[in-house]
């Protein structure tokens, strides 16, 4: 399979889905993403990303039961697939390897406390 890469926003959305304690669907994910990042994000961006991640195989979705509060429309619940977990792990690994590769004291040189 051709390997799909994750964009920054995709990664955040994927992480939010992973971090969600309850069943994750559009609205909750949207709210969490805004809360976690502190950015204002349109719902369409979140939806587009969710569907794209699903196309890439990192997420799976399932339609829930009929609801009362949204005109009877069903919710689409998202869950991580194995590939999604794998992808997040890969990213994490690359990041930590890179972090460890940073020579000690380098950040102090440019004025950061490490």
């Amino acid at each position: 399979m051709r390997r799909s890469f994750l964009g920054e926003f995709e990664e955040i959305v994927l992480l939010v889905v992973a971090a969600c304690p309850a069943e994750a669907y559009g609205v909750t994910i949207w709210e969490d993403v805004q809360q976690q990042t502190g950015r204002t994000i349109t719902m369409s961006a979140v939806h587009a990303t969710l569907y794209r991640l699903e196309e890439k195989g990192f997420l799976s979705s399932l339609m829930g039961g009929a609801t009362a509060e949204r005109g009877g429309r069903r919710k689409r619940f998202f869950a991580l697939t194995n590939a999604g977990v794998q992808a997040l792990n890969d990213i994490q690994e690359v990041r930590s390897r890179l972090w460890q590769a940073i020579p000690p004291g380098k950040f102090q040189l440019i004025g950061f406390k490490n």
């Binding site: 949204r70 069903r74 919710k75």
Partner: peptide, 15 residues
């Protein structure tokens, strides 16, 4: 195929 949950989510936020 996307309409139902998109519309549902939008309405939920609206209310």
């Amino acid at each position: 195929h996307l309409l139902e949950d998109v519309q549902g989510d939008l309405h939920e936020v609206f209310y």
